[in-house]
């Protein structure tokens, strides 16, 4: 028997392929439909939103919802640019900071041997096992005891220490060849130099993945109950107030969320193969 190597897979029947295709089509529609509906609603004129029976797809697309969105935002007593700045500031600082801190910590954890390493490793894996909702109250107490509630730090600092990022980074770095690091050491490079100039450029897929996870979490964060002042609030909390307007505001709400969801989706489309490459090292051994 001669086997073809490369693209064609063995053990496949045509009927099976059709079944697979139909199954994926069915669920693909279920997953895509709400988003299609949101996009369609964003372009619906008011009379189509109140049409009965309701229609999924828009008949006469219009940009009036987007114009109305900018009007609604102009009437806010805190300028819209402020919310935008808040979201951007939290996202950029939280993402860049997390990548650098997680990378710095991941390098010795993956490639060095030192006292207390096993204990730290166990702590990190344990922290993966429970969601942050468990520490919500005590985190609130710690942040308010240090007077950080209702400041940018209350959102940025917890995001910096996400253990999933450290874990993924660590696993990815374990795949780096030791010889490469050893060669740099022989040339007299310090560990910080090696980290920044050799390790980080070689784990680009890992930090691009962390970037997507962080951007997605922070860009969509409404402050997690740690921000009260209107001038510190972020875009998702504006979205929530607009959405509270109900059916009359349906078109504007859809327009706003369409604008909101573009950046993370754009990043993922651009970087999908890097994410998959990183996730292939995510496996848990014990």
């Amino acid at each position: 028997m001669k086997l073809k190597t490369g693209k064609r897979k063995v053990n496949r029947t045509a009927a099976g392929n059709v079944a697979v295709f139909l199954f994926l089509l069915l669920f693909g529609v279920f997953f895509l439909l709400p988003i299609v509906y949101a996009i369609a609603t964003a372009f619906k004129p008011l009379n189509e939103i109140f049409i009965f029976p309701p229609r999924l797809i828009v008949k006469h697309p219009t940009t009036q919802n987007f114009l109305k969105l900018s009007q609604v935002l102009r009437d806010y007593f805190v300028p819209f640019s402020r919310y935008f700045f808040n979201s951007l500031f939290i996202t950029v600082l939280g993402t860049v900071g997390h990548i650098i801190l997680a990378g710095m910590a991941a390098y010795p954890m993956a490639k060095h041997r030192f006292y207390g390493q096993k204990m730290l490793n166990r702590l990190i894996v344990t922290a993966l096992l429970f969601s942050s909702s468990v520490t919500y109250i005590s985190q609130y107490i710690v942040l308010s005891a240090t007077q950080m509630i209702d400041t940018y730090l209350a959102v940025i600092l917890p995001a910096l220490q996400t253990t999933l990022g450290l874990y993924l980074m660590m696993n990815f770095m374990k795949g780096l060849p030791d010889a490469m690091l050893e060669a740099a050491r022989i040339d007299g490079a310090g560990e910080f130099y090696i980290f920044w100039h050799i390790v980080m450029p070689n784990v680009k897929p890992a930090w691009l993945t962390l970037m997507i996870f962080q951007v997605q979490a922070l860009w969509n964060s409404s402050g997690g109950g740690f921000l009260y002042s209107e001038e510190l609030k972020t875009l998702p909390s504006v979205l929530a107030t607009i959405a509270a307007g109900g059916n009359v505001r349906a078109g504007v709400t859809a327009a706003a969320s369409l604008v909101m969801m573009l950046p993370p989706i754009f990043l993922f489309v651009l970087l999908q193969s890097r994410v998959i490459e990183t996730m292939s090292t995510s496996g848990m051994k014990d």
């Binding site: 895509l32 988003i35 997605q216 998702p236 979205l239 969801m261």
Partner: peptide, 12 residues
Amino acid sequence: YMPVLAGNIYFV
């Protein structure tokens, strides 16, 4: 993966 990526879109 889109629903996760799109964040607040679940309001729809």
